[in-house]
């Protein structure tokens, strides 16, 4: 078992954990957190794949950078929406 495989498996486990969170949790902020954990899992798989070759694969790294920005953009919007939504519920 190599380092790459270890992190691949770890990434997959994180992804499944995120899915578990979506299956179970009801509070919207927590759901957003689980989606982020899912994302971290995917990114870990991608970074581990990048580490296969002698020089780390720059394409995967670039894709993960892109993915991170996309993730934070969507998270920011989702959080604002959930707060606005929650407030509506309270009123």
């Amino acid at each position: 078992m190599t380092q790459v495989l270890f992190y691949l498996i770890l990434g997959v486990c994180l992804w499944a954990l995120g899915l578990y969170g979506l299956l179970r949790l009801k509070e919207s902020i927590r759901r957003i957190i689980s989606v982020n954990i899912m994302g971290s899992g995917v990114f870990m798989v991608m970074v581990a794949l990048a580490a296969r070759s002698e020089d780390p694969d720059p394409v995967m790294h670039a894709l993960v950078v892109t993915g991170l920005v996309v993730a934070i953009s969507a998270t920011a919007f989702a959080l604002r929406l959930s707060v606005a939504d929650v407030q509506e519920d309270d009123q």
Binding site: L5, I9, V12, R52, S53, D57, P58, V59
Partner: peptide
Amino acid sequence: IAVILMRAVWPLPDLDSALV
């Protein structure tokens, strides 16, 4: 599901990318 996915990633470390 995690176990199934592990099966999927199992052969990957030995392959490499055409893009590198």
